[in-house]
Design a protein around this nucleic acid. Structure first.
Lengths: 197, 197
DNA sequence: AATAGAAACGGACTGCGGTCCGTTTCGAAC
DNA sequence: GTTCGAAACGGACCGCAGTCCGTTTCTATT
C-alpha cells in the first residue's frame, strides 16, 4: 500500500535525510492540493511545483500517481483501521461477530463515500491492488470464521467486499441508487451467508 | 416554409456514408492491432494510422479509447449474450433457474478470463460503466426472481456480479488464486443466497 | 577534514489521450 | 447539375504520466 520502506529492514539502510524531508514536503503539498482543488488537480507536475522539488523526485518517491494517491489515502485508512481493530464496538472488538461484521460494512461504505475519488485515483492498472485490500479481507475472514462460516474464506471474504468497492458503489449512486439501498442489500447478503453456515 | 423532416427519425438519423465506412475501417484496424500486438498496442494514433484516417475521426466515432474498446468488446459480448438468451441449456433457457444461474457464473468467469484485458481497457474513469453491465444485472435479477429470492433484486444482482468482475478476478489470479477456487466460492455464495430465500 | 561512491535530484524529453478548428465531403432540395 | 448547410474530416496542438541521464548531495570511512 505504502511506498515507504519498512522502518526496520536489515537489508536496506534507512532513508537518506534529504529523501525523507522531500517525502514529507511532497505529501504535504499533495494534501494541500487535494483540499484546495480536488483530486483531479493533483498532477505530478503540480505536486512537484507546490513542494518545490523536481518532478523526477516525485516519481522516485512514489513510483506513480497511483502510488502517491495510495500514500495520501494511507493516512485516513490507518486511522480507520485503528477504529476497526481497537475502537469502540460494534465496529471495534467487544460486540458479537455478526454485529461487528454489519458495522464494518456500514463503516466501510461510509469511507468509500468520503474518499471515493482518492480510491479511484489510487487504483492501478485494473481495479484494486490486492495488497490494498489485505486488511479488509483479513478482518472479514476473521469475523466469518468466528461465525462458523465454512468454505474458502479468503475468496469468500473478497467476494463480500466487492459490492462495497468504489468501482461498484459510485456508479450506482450516479444511477440513483441510494446509500441506504446499497447498505441494506449488503446487510441482507451477509445475513444470508452467515445463516447458511 | 419548407417541409420538415419526417417525425420518426428525430432522434437518430442514419449515419452518413463516409462515417459508416470509417467506423468499419477503424473497427477492422483496431481488431487487427489487438490480434497482432495485444490490447496495449492499440493506441488511438496507431488505430488511425492503420485505418488510414485522421486521429480526430477516431475520437469522433468512439469518443474515447474506452469507447473504442467497448465497441471491440461488443462483438464478443453480443455473441455471448445470444448464448445466454437463446443458446442451449443450462446456460440458455430450458434448465432449472438455479442451474442456469450457476452456468451463468461459470460462463461469465470464462469470458472474463478470455477478454479481461479488453474489459480493463474498456472500463472508464472508475470501474464499470453501468450500461455495460445492464444485461448482466437484468439476467441475474430475472433468475433470482424465478428462484423466489426476495429483496432489492437489482442491487443484489449487481452484488453477486461484483466478485466475477475483471477488477477482482485478475488480481486474484495474479495472487495465485485459481479459477476453480473463484468459481467454487461464487457457486457457494449463490447457493447460500438462494437457499435463504 | 578529505574522499569516494551510492543515493537522490531535477528537468528536458517521449508517448499517449484528448481537444480544436479550418477544410472537405456529403446529400437533400431545387 | 447546382447550391448550401450540416456533418465529418484531419492533423496540429495541449496537458499529463512516466523515463532518462548528467549533476548534486549525502554519509560512511579514514
Amino acid at each position: 500500500m505504502s511506498t515507504e520502506p519498512p522502518l526496520f529492514d536489515l537489508r536496506s539502510r534507512p532513508e537518506r535525510r534529504d529523501a525523507a524531508r522531500n517525502r514529507e514536503l511532497l505529501l504535504d503539498a499533495a494534501h494541500r492540493l487535494v483540499d484546495r482543488d480536488g483530486v483531479d488537480a493533483v498532477t505530478m507536475d503540480a505536486v512537484a511545483a507546490e513542494a518545490g522539488v523536481g518532478k523526477g523526485t516525485v516519481f522516485r518517491r512514489f513510483g506513480s500517481r497511483a502510488g502517491l494517491m495510495s500514500a495520501l489515502l494511507d493516512h485516513g485508512e490507518a486511522r480507520w483501521q485503528g477504529r476497526v481493530i481497537s475502537g469502540p464496538p460494534p465496529l471495534g472488538p467487544g460486540a458479537p461477530a455478526l454485529d461487528r461484521l454489519l458495522a464494518f460494512g456500514e463503516s466501510r461504505l461510509e469511507r468509500t463515500l468520503v474518499s471515493g475519488d482518492l480510491m479511484v485515483a489510487a487504483a492501478g492498472r485494473h481495479g484494486r491492488s490486492l495488497p490494498a485490500v489485505g486488511f479488509l479481507v483479513a478482518h472479514v475472514r476473521h469475523l466469518l470464521a468466528e461465525l462458523d462460516v465454512t468454505g474458502d474464506l479468503p475468496v469468500l471474504a473478497l467476494s463480500l467486499l466487492a459490492p462495497l468497492d468504489v468501482a461498484f458503489v459510485l456508479p450506482q449512486l450516479e444511477a440513483g441508487v441510494t446509500r441506504e439501498r446499497i447498505l441494506a442489500t449488503w446487510t441482507d447478503l451477509v445475513r444470508r451467508v452467515v445463516e447458511a453456515g
